[in-house]
Nucleic acid binder design. Sequence first.
DNA 1: ATAGGGTTAG
Length: 609
Amino acid sequence: MIQASLLNQTHLAVPGDQEVTLTHTSDKLSSFLKVSEKEWLVLLRKCRSVADLKQAHAQVVKLGLFHKPFCASNLVSVAALADWGSIDYACAIFDQIEEPGSFEFNAVIKGYAKEMRFVEALWLYQAMVENGVEPDQFTYPALLKGGGLSSDAAIQVHGHVLKFGFAEDLFVQTSLISLYGRCGEVELSRAVFGEIGVRNVACWSALISANARCGLWDECLEVFGEMMREGVCRAEESALVSVVSACTHLGALELGMCAHGLLLRNVAGLNVAVQTSLIDMYVKCGAVDKGMDLFRKLERRNLLSYSVMISGLAIHGRGEEALNVFSQLLAAGLEPDHVAFVGVLSACSHAGLVDEGLKYFGRMRNEFGIQPTIQHYGCLVDLMSRAGMTSEALALIQSMPMEPNDVCWRSLLSSCRVHRDLDTGEVAAKQLHLLNTENAGDYMLLASIYSQAQRWDDVARIQTEMARKGRAKTPGYCLVEVKRRVYKFFPQEKSYPKCEGVYEMIHQMEWQLRFEGYNADTTQVLLDVDEEEKKERLSAHCQKLAIAFALLHTSEGSPIRLARNLRMCSDCHRYTELISVIFGREIIVRDRNRFHHFKNGTCSCKNYW
DNA sequence: ATAGGGTTAG
């Protein structure tokens, strides 16, 4: 006999030790001898709590019917699969069954998997096989539900699938695709998918989300396209959730809007998951107001929807609104988790709300009992150092209860450049060096700090070291979407016909800028050359080229959306502020970490970047 | 009874 409950050391009271009646079922139970299996099931389905189940159980025991084969089995099944935390109770009943078969095993395995208790699910599955109970076609989808197994366990279970002859079962195959996706083995997902003869929506969706889960966004969209071309079926919600998520990560607003359109046409009443992914997509593609709009209209919000909105507002520098959404979360009676607090702290950091940030950090620990992680400390470091408190940030890093990672040091280093703190910057750079996680960008930051101090020998030393270590500078680029096409600009870009008229436009822009009192900020040009040449270099930065191009090719007054792979230099930032007022355009720039909305001569980041 | 979905510092 297998003791399922021993696996988790939870022993529940065995029913029958107290006189109880199940109000709306007792009359039926009293005539149970005449009641069929089906009616017993109907009865069980009326249960809404563990207490209900215990009462049903107690009465069945009293009537001496517990050992009727279907009776205990159905009790286990209902208890294992219910949504009110009765899995341990299901185990207790399971242990009283003398010869459990695959039905009973499946129910408890699925119950464990549903509760993300994968170790126990796998354990019970192994016990099943060892005891000579043959898995059936329901066993594998049950075991793989939630897909929290390790790669090794997944491959082992896949072996069993082959051994027991379920390699051709579409349900099993779909579970495997999803499982491999969850443990990062997307090639194996694809391999399983390749063996399927007749594909349906579910297995396509599984492959799409497997790619999404592994961060293969392009591939995710590609598979989606393949599915559409094969005309398998209309797009379904669950595939589109991954597609929308891919658009979010790629910054593909147009495509994301197409997916939204597909959803509206094909699915009546979008559920919370889809709505949340749409909100995230709009916000992270720069259309924060559209995202906020969807959020306001969302009726059944959960913790995830709130968290998405909070961190979304954060990257747009809309700190007060983010804090407002957070108080709505509390007012709705939801318990914030560590993810929600990452959003809150990052909102404070991007908006320069230093006191607020520190206050929320304290509340997180004291009021909500959440242990801060490195991410929370990272936000605090960022919060302080951005606000110019670089030495305080350094002290915080040194006193954190965990080892600081490269992110913390890099955040400090980049603030040291903005606030021209050479001493602290050197400390941060040294630590990055010790962690051996430094990248080309870190060298550039340090070199930039030295150049601000006119220490050209040090600049040269850094550049030599960078070359010696083979850390190539990532080429910066700037994307701009004009008339549904995306154009990519590199610094000093000269390609014809893209650049036709662009340099003339740059001259015209600079001529007007001078009237507004613009002076090129050459401090971040890492070359020991004369001022004129520095200015020359600056004026050909990719962001300026992209803006000139957009001004030439878009209608007056329409917003300009740019996306870049690196952060912009201080000169490009100032320049863009002025262009927004001179040309009356809203310019939205997405950099590596956040959005900048330039409008009427100012930027939403309030120079916190 | 069976399969597929959304958030996380820089």
